[in-house]
């Protein structure tokens, strides 16, 4: 009895992993040998025939026809197929709305920190449409030293629906400065930093965002030897993927 139940469970699970067949509604769809428009069309499937979707690479879908032939169909053609209940297939299309409603964002940026090249990676979590918190790790390599910046900041994006959406940020963190080994008296430094910045995010397509920002850092380096805090600026351009 238990074995029977297990077998039944397995067969149900097996049936679930197989997606439902789709019926072709266009006069025909074209099968290509690879997932790009430059690959040749080697087969066409006529209206009324059924296909199974096997996998997806970018906007191309590998399908299997009822005669066993396998090939790649683009998203536009796949949208012209019918579901088992006769309705037209609607594949989800990410738009600006998905960008506004996003929760997580991971990206990388590159630019200049006080004339030295800087690379950074960041992860952000959006509490609401307008507010997010962001964790950034930056690495800069200058002529006399390289520095690593860790910072956490709060971001405000007042108009997420705009095509070029501005944002403002404030954060706190730490900068570790590691002077070049060839200098005479190298001295490692680690200081707290405060940051304010502004930037622009532009939704590109699917899951991609283009981003440009400008930051101003105050390095809390004032001590007995040094009278003033340092002020450094940074610009960065990068892209991100959101979920």
């Amino acid at each position: 009895m238990v074995l029977c139940c297990l077998l039944m469970g397995m067969s149900v699970a097996g049936a679930e992993s197989e997606p439902a067949p789709l019926t072709i509604a266009d006069p025909f769809i074209e099968l290509r040998t690879g997932p790009a428009s430059s690959y040749p069309v080697f087969h066409v499937i006529d209206r009324g025939e059924q296909i199974l979707v096997l996998r997806q690479k970018t906007v191309w879908f590998k399908i299997r026809a009822s005669d066993g032939k396998e090939g790649w169909v683009n998203k536009q053609q796949l949208q012209q197929t019918l579901l088992p209940d006769g309705a037209r297939l609607q594949l989800s299309e990410l738009q600006q709305d998905a960008f506004i409603e996003r929760n997580w964002e991971i990206g990388m940026m590159t630019g200049e920190l006080e004339d030295a090249p800087v690379n950074s990676v960041y992860g952000a979590y959006n509490f609401t449409k307008n507010f997010a918190t962001e964790l950034t790790l930056s690495h800069s390599t200058g002529n006399v030293s390289s520095s690593t910046i860790y910072k956490v900041n709060l971001m405000m994006q007042p108009f997420p629906q705009w095509k070029y959406s501005p944002y403002f940020s404030m954060g706190l963190g730490n900068i570790d400065v590691d002077p070049q080994a060839t200098l005479i008296n190298p001295e490692d430094r680690s200081n707290q930093i405060g940051q304010i910045g502004f930037g622009i995010k532009r939704y590109l397509s699917r899951r991609f965002i283009l981003r440009f920002e400008f930051n101003d850092y105050v390095v809390f380096s004032a001590s007995n030897d040094r009278d003033d805090n340092e002020d450094i600026s940074e610009w960065k351009l990068g892209f991100a993927v959101f979920y």
Binding site: P19, A20, L22, Q56, L83, P84, S92
Partner: peptide, 14 residues
């Protein structure tokens, strides 16, 4: 038995 087409079942390999 009705089989639903679930887009999430498609194996995306990007």
């Amino acid at each position: 038995e009705r089989i639903e087409f679930d887009e999430a079942q498609i194996d995306t390999e990007d």
